[in-house]
């Protein structure tokens, strides 16, 4: 499952990043390392970007980025 597919209000655990080079470093640097718990907070009115709670900070990410994050949804 991709982070993009996580429904608003749901939590998930990061499994791995499929991003490469600069994009990968950037995502890692934001705290999206494996096993990190993220929560989908809200979508912008147009549906993209989406805001996620990542390690205590609410960050808006475009689907181009969240498509590169594989997750496992937490129930």
């Amino acid at each position: 499952m991709l982070l993009t597919q996580l429904l608003t209000g749901k939590k998930a655990r990061v499994v791995r990043l499929t991003a490469r080079s600069q994009k990968r470093r950037r995502l890692l640097d934001l705290g999206l390392i494996p096993d990190t718990v993220v929560k989908s907070i809200r979508r912008s009115p147009a549906g993209d970007p989406t805001a996620y709670l990542i390690r205590g900070t609410t960050l808006g990410l475009r689907s181009e980025e969240t498509n590169l994050v594989e997750i496992k949804e937490l129930s």
Binding site: Q22, R25, R26, D29, G31
Partner: peptide, 8 residues
């Protein structure tokens, strides 16, 4: 910045 790893 969130980090010093020079991504920006």
């Amino acid at each position: 910045t969130y980090s010093l790893l020079a991504n920006s």
